[in-house]
Design a protein around this nucleic acid. Structure first.
Lengths: 118, 118
DNA sequence: TTCTTATATGAATATCTGTTCATATATTTA
DNA sequence: TAAATATATGAACAGATATTCATATAAGAA
């Protein structure tokens, strides 16, 4: 039985609370999961993801499709790329972006299903 | 063939871009999907969700489990409740929270899978 | 009733985040 | 080479958001 590792523990249901605390995923993992969802939690980025689900597209056309500016889209694409959700390919002066894998689509679809059930 | 409805259209691949724009989900739907993911995109809320996946819990014990304060947890539980992700049950002066349905767990698990693949 | 405890909540604060704007870089065209 | 175009990026700004703190409410205990 692990002792409680907090200084001022006063649980309502002590045994249960300590058991749950023991079974929690570590903070880093939970933080990473939250960060992943955070990427999907912005209208502009969700629009980009849905558009790229339909086709590989360049920055300018993504701006047109999402009613945004190339600059704003470029900033968001950088975030999506850092999060390994999209990849890019340069052809001349045009940069084409596409989704990195089907897992991105899967996450999107589960989110879509969820809001349709509400 | 629908005409382009923007004032200053200058697409790189015009036919493709216009076709994708036509196929886009409407803004409200995409906004709602983003809002849904935004709820999951916070460490404290993700910790609450994971803890409630393990057991129904009261505010005080959730604060203990997540190394947070009852006030902070209460604020986040209100957000989770408004988003219909959790429900509550009052027993005397103690309020027990639990996940509203399995869809919440499904979304969490897909997110977890995703970060494990990176 | 009075005190303590569990939760809720409004306001204030600090931090984070997305867009805009100006500008830089790279590539194509004239 | 010079001009135009597509994208990238840093800084500034505005708006959003999470926590803290003080306080309120509600329920049980003394």
């Amino acid at each position: 039985m692990a002792n409680c590792n907090c200084d001022t523990c006063s649980c309502i249901n002590e045994a249960l609370a300590k058991n749950v605390k023991k079974k929690m995923l570590n903070d880093d993992t939970l933080f990473d999961i939250a960060e992943c969802f955070k990427i999907f939690g912005d209208s502009t980025r969700i629009k980009i993801i849905y558009a790229l689900k339909l086709s590989e597209l360049c920055v300018n056309d993504l701006a047109f499709i999402t009613n945004s500016t190339p600059s704003a889209i470029s900033h968001q694409l950088r975030i999506l790329k850092q999060a390994k959700l999209v990849k890019s390919k340069k052809v001349g002066k045009i940069v084409y972006y596409s989704l990195k894998d089907n897992h991105v689509i899967k996450l999107f679809e589960i989110g879509r299903e969820h809001i349709e059930e509400l």
